[in-house]
Design a protein around this nucleic acid. Sequence first.
DNA 1: CGCTACCTTGACGCGAATCAAGCGGCGTGG
DNA 2: CCACGCCGCTTGATTCGCGTCAAGGTAGCG
Lengths: 236, 236
Amino acid sequence: MSKSIDNPECLFCNTRMHSFFNVLDKSQLQLLTQHKSCAIFKKGQYVFNEQGLPHGLFCVNNGKIKLSTIGFDGKEQILRLAKSGDVIGYRALISNQRYHCSAIAIEDSSVCIIDKNFFFQTLENNNKLLFEIAKKIGNDLKIAEEHIVSLSQKNVRERVAEALLFLKATYGFAPDGQTINITLNREEIADYVGTSTESTIRFLSEFNHEKIIEISGKKIKIINLSKLTKTANLMD
Amino acid sequence: MSKSIDNPECLFCNTRMHSFFNVLDKSQLQLLTQHKSCAIFKKGQYVFNEQGLPHGLFCVNNGKIKLSTIGFDGKEQILRLAKSGDVIGYRALISNQRYHCSAIAIEDSSVCIIDKNFFFQTLENNNKLLFEIAKKIGNDLKIAEEHIVSLSQKNVRERVAEALLFLKATYGFAPDGQTINITLNREEIADYVGTSTESTIRFLSEFNHEKIIEISGKKIKIINLSKLTKTANLMD
DNA sequence: CGCTACCTTGACGCGAATCAAGCGGCGTGG
DNA sequence: CCACGCCGCTTGATTCGCGTCAAGGTAGCG
């Protein structure tokens, strides 16, 4: 399944500062290092599986992960995306429920796995960490509810534009400052937008012809950001 | 705006046991009583408003509240529903953000307002309460993400059926054991489903003709629950 | 008793899903 | 090293769900 690698020191983890573990002090971080293990997940591998029980918390050290679920007729729905420094699996762990979505590596990723019991012990003495997690889940909720409004009220063209902006907001640009720093195939974009692959392709081509974006294979460059934002109907 | 009423004792509040305040002990509850006020909101009145800053936490003592937001072309989207015993406004309060949706009384409701500062003080010394809130937000997130999948992948007929089941799950039945214990107008049902009022009406009539439900005005009786569940495509 | 707000039904047209076919790139095996 | 096959991308044609517009009905309230 996943390959174990050297266990990096949390104290020196440069992605940590972006996650909610930045509230821990030095001694807590050293303790954390002792209660985690690190593993590599190759593209397409499952970090955890829908319906599974959580045994720990996952911290993305390097790479990109999608959180998605399989719908009624087998169609995938991408719910969230995680990048380096993000923590995943906290919702089910905190709620003591089974995962309601799977976590799948979009590209080769290294992920630290923090032991469940140690995590709960840490939470008990660390109100601040719990508070940060609550805030994080609250933010996820806000984003999910905005997605609901979008699915309810926007047409596919607007939602495809929105998806590109979402990808850009999540993963930023490649060094060239224009190319969205993630490669999803057309089906995966469709699985986030909630539409068919064909419709996604049609609107991407439209944006291409309208010089809003520039497509070369799976690489998408945003040429005209303000036009894209307007297309997504995010103005006013 | 809202009318003040006698301040009921939290200790004796029989709705409290269903909310996350059930982790508080006797002395904490007495303290809570001193830091809250109670108000009546008439049908249609705003408990809090989208874009507003949270000054406290709201505890629904009696009545029914909808949490909704106004979309891009002015169309409303109902995101959550609250009933007696439910707490609302925790997400924005915890995250220290503006509300991203409004809370509007669906019927005349009495709501206790807990002072923000007192609430945060209580949280600091009360890990358990914070933990319960995190779980609650996590559950909201799960429900929201299920709604996303539904909006993405189901047709309107299935979603209208699902909405009825959601209303039943939230508010239960009236004493007759069949009538859904909430009256929304057709537009409000549509605003939850993410469709037009006319489509909602059409499918409700269909269900009526198919003897799945029985409609008399705004009252909806569920005649054939298993058929309704099957119509919502929630099987297996 | 009349007005207003809500419900209902029908007709129409558009947006997007589906079906179908062809293309291109890449990896594999001969 | 080239040919073949497969998978993902793309585009066109067709179908159909559902949103929109329009008109009429009903019930509750002042």
